[in-house]
Design a binder for these strands. Structure first.
Lengths: 245, 245
DNA sequence: TTATGTGAAAGCGTTCACAGCC
DNA sequence: GGCTGTGAACGCTTTCACATAA
């Protein structure tokens, strides 16, 4: 999975980050710590469950659901066990009920306002992407400094100038932002967003964003994805016996 | 990291897949198996090295390079050690030389032809994305079944109809394809691509693509990325003491 | 009998810490 | 002295395998 960006290897070989990245107040129970790897899969399960619900299937076994989600069934059961015991032994899981439970955990019980900074090709595509809406994300702000883009609008939402960033964040209350600017502008934008109270950032720039502790960062690097594929192609060329994965 | 899609949990609780996904011919040396996690970071190192080279810096320590790449220096050294011993103790790494070595492994010593199937908002953005070109990927084919898109062209490359897929793949020799179609078309497209000899697929559809062993799949699910961020926001709301990551 | 929930084992990946070399 | 290269320790993730419950 993708770790959030964080300053690493500080010059002073200071105290090691505690696993949770926090003061060791973790051993207490109240906070059921769900593993990161599990969290990353919950949306996948949710999607599979939604498809089942559409097909009017109301009970599903761990095996069937695991197959639909592309994971091992033991893994699925373990993942779900972190949320609680929502299945029935000998039977399986109630699709609707499980959907609700996962949805609650994942936060899709409510709508999330999101702003997008940078409306080049990629940013514009994201602004138009229906997959966000269907998962409860509402694009409520569009920001770009380019004069020729400002005031153009997408789905009825006008693009604001970068100088209005503060207003937009304050007005929309967005805690989640998407950065789709050129690489060299990304860090500055991130700094401003963090200063305005944004606590989650999804970015597409092939750079390491440095943000304070407490801010979530996820990075999607499209060039990197292709390079990983190219690596395997490369290997296959060099050594035809080598197996692709 | 993201595993490639693969049919899991087969109905027959058959023999477990060997770790490498192949016959146990692995213990031999010749094939230096580089961990997937490392492979995913090599492009990051490469990018950092390129920046250093631009700044005319020709030697770099593991600490400095690690910081630029956003990883721990021990990790960087271990990663590089899988490629060979390219550093000098007491000194560091020669930027240019290391760049060459990583580039060779990653396959960026050559250009990779890539085709894009599906030219909606996202596909079009990808076709225009300069980050592919700069990393050695050449978009050599564009495919979409929509009559209103066919023959339109992007950067001088005309969009071909889906019926011409076979021709395009044969003509361009692309082994890597990007699928940016609607979710319900993705599997069919993948099947055809695989049939035509494509062995690496990057896709953006929020579905599990089933492909034969030996085909690489990487998935980028933008909605899922936001949902992971939303989960952490959600947690922070529920329990303000909970630390974000 | 069927299928969940979960300890225990195995497998990976990261980090530590230091031997080895410049 | 400085910095790489790497065995060993650690912690996280996945998988196994079975007790448990319907």
């Amino acid at each position: 999975m993708q770790p959030s960006a964080r300053a690493t290897d500080p010059v002073s070989t200071g105290p090691v980050l505690t696993p949770g990245g926090t003061t060791p107040t973790r051993p207490s129970e109240a906070t059921r710590g769900i593993p990161d790897a599990t969290i990353a899969r919950l949306p996948v399960y949710l999607r599979a469950l939604n498809q089942l619900a559409e097909s009017e299937i109301d009970t599903v076994s761990s095996r069937a659901l695991a197959e639909a989600a592309g994971v091992n069934s033991a893994q699925l059961r373990k993942d779900l066990s972190y949320l609680g015991s929502y299945g029935t032994r000998g039977v399986g899981y109630d699709v609707d009920y499980l959907r609700q439970q996962i949805g609650r955990q994942v936060g899709s019980a409510r709508d999330w306002p999101v702003i997008i900074v940078g409306l080049g090709n990629l940013g514009t595509a994201l602004a138009n992407y229906s997959g966000f809406y269907s998962r409860g994300f509402r694009v409520v702000g569009l920001i770009d400094p380019a004069p020729e883009l400002v005031d153009r609008n997408i789905h009825g939402l006008a693009i604001s100038d970068l100088t209005e960033l503060e207003d937009v964040v304050a007005r929309t209350g967005a805690a989640i932002a998407v950065i789709a600017t050129p690489a060299d502008a990304a860090q500055a934008v991130a700094d401003r967003l963090v200063g305005l109270g944004v606590t989650s950032i999804l970015h597409f720039a092939p750079v390491v964003l440095l943000v304070p502790d407490g801010v979530n960062v996820r990075k999607v690097d499209l060039g990197q994805e292709l390079q990983i594929l190219a690596y395997h192609e490369q290997r296959a060329l060099v050594d035809p016996h080598e197996v692709r994965r």
